[in-house]
Nucleic acid binder design. Structure first.
Length: 871
RNA sequence: GGGCGGUUAGCUCAGUUGGUAGAGCGCCUGCUUUACACGCAGGAUGUCGGGGGUUCGAGCCCCUCACCGCCCACCA
């Protein structure tokens, strides 16, 4: 074994071992109540691994490995998502670079190309997940466009259609001019924009003046159908029912009254354009107005309401032309800069054009109800808990979901239209001729909403479905709670009658060191592979702004995953490399602790707890406490607590103390000590395995007598027994504190580190641990231990729990320094005594605080006084 | 406009029934102690965002203000 743990050499080898072992590929036996399963959030098929994946994989892998240690049959369902728009856009870009386009090659050719593209790049992210050592079932990889999956999607569509939950309608939708498709409300993002607000006169038909409206989109005025004012508005009340003349077009517009109109905004008069504005659409419906359209799906002016000179102009150009003409006519009263929020497409980044379009919609109210109930009743729990409210608030105000997309890559809508007007919805095409299939495809989230059960074979009642559905945990980032999680709950309940998972863990978002989002375009992105295998450190991750960023060391997967888990806490956090480095030190520490043990233990020794000395009982108890702490933290989805609890045990207890305390016995070749050490080491790597699987697996392989893989080893059940020996725990705890006090005293008193000081122990509660005080405190303890008459006067006294260590005069002790140290300690004690005494002198405290708190304070005061006395 | 989260040591963050503030990194002082210098021992460092309140006692509970971030929302 090398003195340094080298993940680059170990990890790929171990990952391969796990892959070949079959531990990730459970047989579909039993049912879901006894088994444990997680469906991975399917990454985009052409995606690459980013920090969010790395964290989420660490979370899920930790959960899976812990469940497996508890003896459960575990399955982590793997697969990728076809990601309609994202994938189509990539392939379109490729076509353009080749000098062609999807229109030119046609739909069939295009879809073939996307499949070819998927063959080429689709495996990359799977390979990356393999490198992470994730315990996913690689033998059963799914894809949302696989034939079986596609059949299930169509079946779901048809059933919802037949129930009347899916319908086709002309409705105002979010039109994305970038992808030339409708998108759902969740895919638009409001962005603050400064526009010009135009105040435009609409002459009254009566000829007596004009009514002025304010708008940022003059080009839509050609689709105006009315002018609305507030019924309470004194200025306009007399005009209600009159008509105005639409400039440039000459159409008559009725002046109507509607409460929606705010009197204080703009002029208090609002032009109503139902075809191009969501609010106007509502108002128009209330008043039975038509909703003509003047902007087409290509973003250009079109329709019978558009005068010929504007036809075919892009909306923005039409605006300029229309404003120019209005200016000529003197109809623009004024303009002002106006900052407001405007919807943009998250996909293409283009400004949304609201327009009336024939689309497929899904009614959500009926589906939402049971999905609300299961969360309210606690059948599904969110972690951290605050997301429950976010989910419920959203679910209670669901509007219809626009599910059709004008794309070619995706699940084509299973509806056929006949020349004669008949409509057929079905998984299979209708017989006969004259049928034409709806060209649109379904929103990607429609198919991913079926993920947890279709991946297991639904609608067939497969053994996999029986064994692993419902799944246990769904782990994800908060950005897709609505897009994905909510829809899985609704569709899962609707089609399987069961919740798709019982716990939703919403993990942290890892931010760049400057607090901004990690993003490639901002230059704040970080490729996890650079951290794992070593690579250039991006400038945003340099230790100082102007410094050469240098390179990441090859931290390894264990370090990156422990670091990410330790960073994340249910709170968004800035990435800090120190945590990863801390993890690297932890793996190295564990590695070297193992070396210490393994190098000194005979190969025929077997792990077995055979405690003799107090410290043996102590470490077994501490180990048990660590098992409880780590286990509880993981079960509560508090991964940073789990990671730090492990760290504290390995560093603060196992390495700093136990190994130091048993070294003499280990060097003596004591058989019981060796067996006990192997036991502690085995249980420690088992405990650590879910968090740092690689290094622990590697160490386990070196432990004499270890069988099989650590990944398949069942863990001790920590909760099953009480802490074995609290008496020894206390005794060793005291010894530790005493040694620390002695060391601190030596340091402060300028004693040479190597010097062994003659001393006398005058304290209670130190039995066998006296030898530890002597060795680790570098003392030559007077064998008599007492303060017999005639013994030399002490040169100094070191306060330790239960008494003092009297240091006898010797050439290594500087009496002056010792005196200074003693006085400092005395002042410290006196201050504490004053504080405690003051508290107890407070009658109200004594009267009202709980008895045990008061009692504890009294005991402390007494102990402090005794210490002072001893000095 | 509504909601949620944050503000704790120089930096990144813990602090889960209210009982004298913690970790890692960084900093200071020592140490070739036969597992580890990616090490060991010791040390310094905080009016816990501001203000008010409840309480014997508040980083934790209540009110309020400020700033930062996120989400939702139909003001032309």
């Amino acid at each position: 074994m090398k003195t340094r743990y080298e993940p680059a050499e170990v990890e790929p080898r171990i990952a391969q071992t796990w892959l070949e072992s079959g531990i990730n590929n459970p047989a579909p036996e039993g049912d879901s109540s006894e088994n444990y399963s997680i469906a991975i959030p399917p990454p985009n098929v052409t995606g690459v691994l980013h920090m969010g994946h790395a964290l989420n994989n660490a979370v899920q892998d930790t959960l899976i490995r812990r469940a497996r240690q508890q003896g459960k049959r575990t399955k982590w369902i793997l697969g990728t998502d076809h990601a309609g728009i994202a994938t189509q856009t990539q392939v379109e870009k490729q076509l353009i670079s080749l000098g062609t386009s999807r229109e030119e090659i046609g739909r069939e050719q295009f879809v073939n190309r996307v499949w070819a593209w998927r063959e080429l790049y689709g495996g990359e992210i799977i390979e990356q997940i393999k490198r992470l050592g994730s315990s996913v079932d690689f033998s059963a990889e799914r894809f949302t466009m696989d034939a079986d999956y596609a059949q299930a999607v169509l079946k779901v569509f048809v059933e919802l259609y037949e129930k009347g939950l899916i319908y086709r309608d002309r409705y105002l939708v979010n039109w994305d001019p970038g992808s030339l498709s409708a998108i759902s409300d969740l895919e638009v993002q409001d962005v603050e924009v400064t526009d010009t607000l135009y105040y435009i006169d609409y002459p009254l038909a009566s000829g007596s003046g004009a009514i002025t409206v304010a708008t940022v989109r003059p080009e839509t005025m050609l689709a105006d159908v009315a002018i609305a004012v507030n019924p309470e508005d004194e200025r306009y009340r007399r005009l209600i029912g009159e008509t105005a003349v639409l400039p440039l077009a000459g159409r008559r517009l009725k002046i109507i009254a509607d409460d929606y109109v705010k009197t204080e905004f703009g002029t208090g008069a609002l032009k109503i354009t139902p075809g191009h504005d969501p609010n106007d659409f509502e108002i128009g419906n209330r008043h039975g107005l038509p909703h003509p359209s003047v902007i087409g799906e290509d973003g250009r002016m079109q329709g019978e309401d558009v005068p010929e000179r504007f036809l075919g102009l892009k909306a923005a150009d039409a605006r300029d032309a229309i404003v120019a003409e209005l200016d000529e006519l003197g109809l623009i009263q004024r303009r002002e800069a106006y900052t407001h929020t405007v919807p943009f497409s998250q996909r293409s980044g283009e400004r949304i054009e609201p327009l009336i379009s024939l689309q497929w919609f899904m009614r959500m109210d009926e589906l939402a109800k049971p999905a609300i109930d299961v969360v309210r009743s606690g059948q599904i729990r969110f972690h951290p808990e605050r997301w429950t409210k976010v989910y419920l608030d959203w679910m209670e105000n669901l509007r219809p979901w626009c599910i059709s997309r004008q794309l070619w890559w995706g699940h084509q809508i299973p509806v056929w239209y006949h020349d004669d007007g008949r409509v057929h919805a079905g998984v299979e095409a209708p017989d006969g001729s004259g049928w034409e299939r709806d060209p649109d495809v379904l929103d990607t989230w429609f198919s991913s909403g079926l993920w947890p059960f279709v991946t297991l074979g639904w609608p067939e009642q497969t053994p996999e479905l029986k064994a692993f559905y419902p799944t246990d945990v769904l782990s994800t980032g908060r950005d897709i709670i609505f897009l994905w999680v909510a829809r899985m709950i609704m569709l899962g309940l609707e089609f399987t009658g069961e919740i798709p998972f019982s716990d939703v863990y919403v993990h942290s978002i890892i931010l760049a060191p400057d607090g901004r989002r990690m993003s490639k375009s901002l230059g704040t992105g970080l490729d996890p592979r650079g951290l794992i295998d070593g690579g250039e450190r991006p400038p945003a991750f340099a230790s100082a702004p102007d410094e050469d960023p240098g390179e990441f060391p090859a931290y390894g997967t264990d370090a990156v995953r422990w670091g990410l888990l330790a960073m994340s806490s249910g709170q968004d956090v800035r990435f800090n490399e120190e945590k990863v480095s801390q993890a690297q030190q932890l793996t190295n520490k564990l590695w070297n602790a193992s070396r210490l043990v393994l190098q000194r233990v005979d190969s025929d020794t077997r792990a077995d707890a055979r405690p003799h000395a107090p410290e043996d009982h102590w470490i077994l108890a501490r180990l048990q406490r660590a098992q409880l702490a780590v286990g509880e933290a993981i079960d509560a989805f508090e991964f940073s607590r789990a990671a730090l609890a492990l760290y504290d045990f390995v560093y603060g207890e196992l390495c700093d103390w136990y190994l130091e305390l048993v070294k003499p016995r280990l060097y003596d070749g004591d058989a019981d000590t060796a067996a006990t050490l192997l036991h502690v080491l085995t249980e420690t790597v088992t405990l650590a395995h879910p968090l740092i699987p690689f290094v622990t697996e590697e160490i386990y392989a070196h432990i004499p007598g270890s069988e099989g893989l650590l990944a398949g080893r069942r863990a001790q059940s920590a909760a099953s027994a009480g802490i074995s020996d609290t008496g020894s725990e206390d005794e060793v705890q005291r010894a530790i504190e005493a040694i620390q006090a002695i060391r601190a005293w030596r340091d402060a008193a300028d004693v040479k580190p190597a010097a062994i000081l003659p001393a006398r122990l005058a304290a209670d509660g130190y039995g066998e641990t006296v030898t530890h005080l002597a060795r680790l405190g570098r003392l030559e303890l007077d064998a008599s231990g007492g303060s017999a008459d005639g013994a030399a006067a002490a040169a100094a006294a070191i306060v330790i729990p239960g008494g003092v260590v009297e240091v006898l005069p010797s050439e290594d002790v500087d009496a002056e320094a010792a005196l200074r140290k003693r006085d400092a300690k005395r002042r410290e004690l006196e201050a504490e005594i004053r504080r405690a005494g003051g508290k107890l002198a407070n009658e109200k405290f004594v009267a009202r605080a709980p008895a045990e708190v008061v009692q504890a304070e009294r005991a402390k005061l007494e102990a402090l006084r005794a210490e002072l006395e001893a000095l």
